[in-house]
């Protein structure tokens, strides 16, 4: 049985992998593959956000009473990353490799520093506070991330 940190960190790595695939396709000038990979990446990221915002964060907030704390900071960063995703999508639609590379570079760093904070601080706090719920919460997160395409917030 996974704990929250392991499960969600694995999903971060999955997003990284698809991000790299999309970047590779754009670098190769293979726009059809880039469209497919980027769509996959966007969906993976948005589902990850949706799982956090609809399940994990509310559970954490309810248990700890901290609704203006770390989860609020993370929600704010999700907003910024959604904007960068849209900027990347627009650049891709315009077949603008330079523009895509600028927004994907920015998104990558934003995403990595965000992941670092979640993996090092927030998820361990979730594992600690939600220890009694992990067994039901992780499968629900898994369902949200894997089985509900287009479940963006």
């Amino acid at each position: 049985m996974h704990n929250i940190r392991e499960f969600m960190a694995d999903d971060h790595r999955r997003c990284d992998d698809v991000f790299a695939d999309a970047e590779q396709a754009v670098a190769d000038g293979d726009w059809a593959r880039a469209d497919a990979r980027f769509a996959q990446f966007r969906q993976a990221v948005l589902q990850h956000f949706a799982a956090e915002e609809s399940l994990l964060f509310p559970a954490f907030e309810e248990k700890t009473g901290m609704s203006m704390g770390p989860t609020q900071v993370m929600r704010g960063e999700h907003v910024q990353m959604r904007e960068l995703l849209e900027e990347g999508a627009a650049a891709l639609a315009a077949r603008d490799a330079e523009g895509y590379s600028g927004s994907s570079e920015t998104l990558l760093i934003m995403m990595q520093q965000h992941n670092m904070k979640e993996e090092n601080v927030l998820y361990p706090m979730c594992d600690q506070h939600l220890v009694d719920y992990v067994e039901t919460l992780v499968p629900r997160l898994q369902a949200q991330i894997q089985n509900q395409p287009g479940a963006d917030a």
Binding site: V79, E83, S103, E105, T106
Partner: peptide
């Protein structure tokens, strides 16, 4: 969120 920031490569071109 009302004024979008230029991405990194617009800040400094590669």
């Amino acid at each position: 969120g009302r004024v979008l920031a230029p991405n990194m490569k617009k800040v400094l071109a590669e």
